[in-house]
Structures are given as C-alpha cells and as structure tokens.
Amino acid sequence: MAKIVAGIGSSHVPSIGRAYDQQKQTDPAWQPLFDGYEPVKRWLAEEVKADVVILVYNDHGTEFFLDRYPTFALGVADQYRVADEGYGRRPLPDFPGDADFSEHLANALVADEFDLTLCQEMELDHGFLTAMPLLWAHDEDQWPVKVVPLLTNVIQHPIPSGRRCYKLGQAIRRAVESYPEDLRVVVVGTGGLSHQLNGERFGWINEAWDREWLQRIQDEPEALADLSHKEVMTAAGAEGGEMIMWLTMRGAMAPQVREVHQFYYAPMTTGIGLLALEDDAGAQDAG
C-alpha cells in the first residue's frame, strides 16, 4: 500500500530560483535561506526516502492562460518539462512523472467528487520549480523522485476556498492509501507566505501572521480552512492568498502531526516559509 510519509510547506519565489542557478548559496543575503532548507533536504534524503512527490502549486501566466482556466488540474504524464517564463529555461532537468500512480489518483479523486482537469502535457514554472532543488538533490539530468503536479487556481477569483483545498488533501490521502503498490509519497504545498505584488500596497509583508500560520497549520488547520479569502488577503497580501495550497498538504496529513523543521526568512517582498511535518505516530497508535 502507498503511504504518505511527509508533508512539506514551502514558498515559491522566482528570485530563489535565480539565486540557486547563480550559485549564491554562500552570498550573505541568501545563505540563511539555503541553510534553512538544508536540514529538511537531509531528512528527506536520509530518512524519508520518497518515491513520488505530489506537489501543489499554481502557474503564473506561463502554461495556463485565462482563456480556459482550471480550478484544479492534475498531471497524468510520465514526463514534465521545465517551462520558459520569459527569461529562458532554468538549467534544471525535466521531471519524471508516474503516470500509473497519477491515473489512480485521477480515478480515485474524481470518484471522490473532485472533478479535476487532467493534463497529459504540462510545463512547470517557478510555482512548481522553486522548492524542488532545495528539497531534493539532482544531477544534470536526473531527479531522485518522480512527481505529480497538482495545479490550483489562486490567481483569478473565484478561487477555491481554503476548506475545499483542505478537503482535497483529505481525499488525496484516501487515494494514496488505496494504491496497491508500496510507494512512499511526500505531499508538498507551495506558495505564500505573506506578499503582495499589486497596487499601492506592493511589498506588503506580515511576519507575525506568517509565524502564526506556521504554527496554526499544525495545531488548528480547520480554523485556517474556515478563513475567507478576504481575511487571508487582508492579513497576508493579495498574492499571499495562495497559501491556501498549504491546506491541501495539511489535509493529506494525519490530524495530529509532528514538526520536523520550521524556517522563516523575509528578505525582500515575500515572507518565505518552510515547514516539514510527519504524522504523529504516538497519536496514531492511540487512535
């Protein structure tokens, strides 16, 4: 049986990708960030040893246009290409998919009333790409894990509610656990934390909110799932509203979780958050 072995929350920011590609790991402005991800990268490599990563993200006007915009879209391919966002393709290997596992997820999730758009081709922009090399080491043409991209519309309202994202995560857990193969699955929710890139309020960051979010998503995700978009965007900025994608990850975890690592850094225009969770085994035995 397949099983969810870790849940990760991680921001996605283009400047992190640039810093990575330009090897700014020891640049004083960037070192705190790369150091902050290092313990999680090590934990994933040495203990978690995932086979497949389901990564929840949004596209940023790269692969999906407003002419037809899916609310949720799932990759069902064996390969996903790195997109060109207008500055050239990042020097990262393309990603191997797991089409059989995706097919199972598609069947299970649609049967479970999540009517997804299914994609045989999907190029991946920074929404997907940012976290990957910070969490998994790759060489020139290979990743150590397969991926399943799960796109969420967070750019054109109406966007799904936090509650809907949370429930989708719960459905993903059921779907994973009904897959006969012994796969070790990590769910990554990306986006946020606070930031705003439009209007006079450009540059808005709310560190207190972000730090609370990193704690509350562990202890009271249901309360976060009940927040309206207006509440989240007022506190966390218009583009910060995308942090509902973390709730999909959280819904896929057990009700009780254990924090493996937490990191926060807000250097420029985004509160960058990282959270690594696993199911709380003690609580599971008891229940």
């Binding site: 407003l66 309020r201 207006k230 965007m233 218009a238």
Partner: peptide, 19 residues
C-alpha cells in the same frame, strides 16, 4: 467589492476588463 486598500483583487470582472 473587496474592501482591501491599495489592492486590486484579480477577480473575473477585472480579468474580463483586462483580457
């Protein structure tokens, strides 16, 4: 519509305006 100062929430109406 949204009541968030200094902010233009990209909703369907704004999206249609800017298509």
């Amino acid at each position: 519509r949204w009541g968030i100062p200094g902010t233009y929430v990209f909703d369907l109406r704004l999206s249609r305006r800017g298509y």
